[in-house]
Design a protein around this nucleic acid. Sequence first.
DNA 1: TTTACTCTGCAACTTAGTCGCATTTAATAC
DNA 2: GTATTAAATGCGACTAAGTTGCAGAGTAAA
Lengths: 122, 122
Amino acid sequence: MKIEELIRDKNIKLTTARVKLLEILKAADKPLCYEEIKNDISMDKATFYRNISKFEEEDILNAFESNDKKRYFELKLTPHAHFVCVQCNKVECVKNIDIALVNYEINNIIINGKCPSCVEAS
Amino acid sequence: MKIEELIRDKNIKLTTARVKLLEILKAADKPLCYEEIKNDISMDKATFYRNISKFEEEDILNAFESNDKKRYFELKLTPHAHFVCVQCNKVECVKNIDIALVNYEINNIIINGKCPSCVEAS
DNA sequence: TTTACTCTGCAACTTAGTCGCATTTAATAC
DNA sequence: GTATTAAATGCGACTAAGTTGCAGAGTAAA
């Protein structure tokens, strides 16, 4: 899928900086935070967060707060859950988990706990 | 269950301030953040967070970051999931959800989305 | 190319949570 | 009960992710 398809019919101008940002998010196999992206973009911090908000408004991106007080971002492509290790703060995707709540609208599921390496180390 | 039982065999001194804090958390029917507790305790902010960390270390409390950039705290009594509304930031408990991941240790499950009132309003 | 509007960078700001340090308090020994 | 000691507390200064205001630059449509 091309970046252009992602934002088709959305109220978003396709600037060079935004294309780069969307490409990075599309290529990632897990949610990323600003710190993990900043070196690969030449975009100001303020602009970065303003773009992220824009993408959220236009419903092409999911964001959540992890345990390290940072927000993590991921394109809404195939819905899946996320695991966050409370010890090493690693974030990973978890497939095959499905939860339904009547009358609720579910955006994201986050599982907090210890990842296998941290379980073993403790 | 009494507060004394909660911290039995734990490396925790039972100060007046701590008993009050634990009583508030025990009485709550959902996770609370500092802002929701501060008016009911006469404890400094720094002391509050140091006690919360202590309780986490001693494994009697779960904490997680919500969407409003605040940490929410709850005693580890009966394990259950939590729903956080991305619109009104309300936090509620969700029973009857069970997830298992082989080799992982699960502390908490957080479901992000829109609560019924916010779904209806949008 | 002109116009209208959005995007961007910069710098200052906000705020939940943390840290250092001097003082107080709880638990144990005497 | 009193002394001892290690942990708990309050205060104020600090940290850092994320936000805001503003002036200038870029984009898309006429």
